[in-house]
């Protein structure tokens, strides 16, 4: 077996915050002992609600934030400290796309110049080669040179996200972190960008970490999926299979909460209680206060992510080997 392109082991990140001006500082465990790896050319999708730590994970993977514990290895080597020459070299091979394309672009520069910027920064190619590369990138994202001369304000939301994508691809990265890249787009435009991402991934052999709250979009793009809840992975598996046969009670609720047009849901699982607060993490299994199956053991003991079969890992005391309570939720 070849080494995975990205290997994350046991990373944690804790923020200190105060509740109010005079409050006592508390620790927020945004990410807590997370491990996963992504083989070359594959896409791992991370789903979870707000506060699950999915964006923090993306930032740690890129070295934008150092993990408090654990390590991230990219192509066999640990991520260097931000600002160093090694880190720069690594970062040319790893790029990121965020939710808000307007915030990621400079409003006062024509977009072609912004696509060109990474080439200037990393000193790649001659002037003519850089021009040719910008032209090629605009075409790769289904835009033309005319679009390149415009300012971000003169482009639609979908076009802006294509520009951000083109810029991310400028240095021919091997690895792309996408954090909610299509969440701000309208449905029809979202489909254009999703198709583009799928095509580019196949054509360029990109490895991706795709972070989203939208199960449908994640399934469309990912080969493997990790479901996060309060900083931990609660279920991991093959994308199609995971959504078809969710095993963890939380995944089951998520899948059943995703409404499908064309059929009225029967027996949707509606979780009681509020979304989890990372500053007040429940004891034991963090999901137990909202879980309809919780037992005394769930309150006391933290469940470990264990392999159910070669394809699936679940962190739940109640899910063991046999797919006992398969939900027909999808």
């Amino acid at each position: 077996m070849t080494t995975p392109l990205l290997e994350v082991s046991e990373i944690s990140r804790t923020y200190r915050m105060r509740a109010g001006l005079f409050g006592r500082p508390t620790s927020v465990h945004a990410v807590d002992g997370l491990s996963f790896s992504i083989p070359k050319g594959e896409t791992l999708g991370i789903v979870g609600e707000s506060g699950s730590g999915k964006s923090t994970t993306g930032r740690m993977v890129l070295g934008l934030e150092p993990p408090d514990h654990g390590s991230v290895r990219f192509d066999g080597a640990p991520i260097a400290a931000p600002g160093t020459a090694t880190w720069r070299a690594q970062r040319a091979r790893m790029q990121m796309i965020f939710q808000d394309p307007l915030g990621a672009l400079d409003r006062r520069l024509p977009v072609a110049e912004q696509i060109r910027e990474p080439l200037d920064i990393h000193n790649i190619g001659s002037k003519a080669e850089r021009d040719a590369r910008v032209h090629e990138l605009l075409h790769a994202v289904d835009l033309n040179d005319g679009h390149g001369r415009r300012y971000p304000g003169a482009l639609s939301g979908g076009q802006r996200q294509r520009i951000v994508l083109a810029r991310a691809l400028a240095t021919k990265p091997d690895f792309l972190v996408c954090d909610e890249p299509v969440s701000a787009l309208d449905v029809s435009i979202q489909a254009q960008v999703v198709n583009l991402l799928v095509d580019l991934q196949a054509r360029l052999g990109l490895t991706m970490l795709f972070i989203s709250h939208d199960l449908r979009v994640v399934r469309q793009i990912s080969s493997k999926v990790a479901v996060m809840y309060l900083g931990r992975i609660v279920e991991y598996g093959d994308a199609d299979d995971l959504f078809a046969r969710p095993q963890h009670p939380y995944t089951q609720a998520l899948v059943s909460a995703s409404p499908a047009p064309g059929r009225r849901s029967t027996g949707r699982i509606v979780l009681s209680g509020d979304p989890p607060n990372p500053a007040a993490r429940p004891s034991g299994c963090a999901f137990h206060p909202r879980c309809r199956l919780a037992t005394a053991r769930c309150k006391a003991e933290v469940p470990v992510l264990t392999a159910l079969d070669p394809q699936r890992q679940v962190a739940c005391h109640l899910v063991t080997g046999a797919p006992a309570q398969t939900q027909d939720a999808a």
Binding site: V187, S188, I189, Q190, A191, Q192, V194, N195, V198, L215, R216, V217, R219, Q220, D240, F243, A244, V255, S258, A260, P261, A330
Partner: peptide, 17 residues
Amino acid sequence: IGALPPLDGARRRLQAI
């Protein structure tokens, strides 16, 4: 409707408008 990724069944290319 075609632009909406399905959550079950076979994956298909999204029909983008």
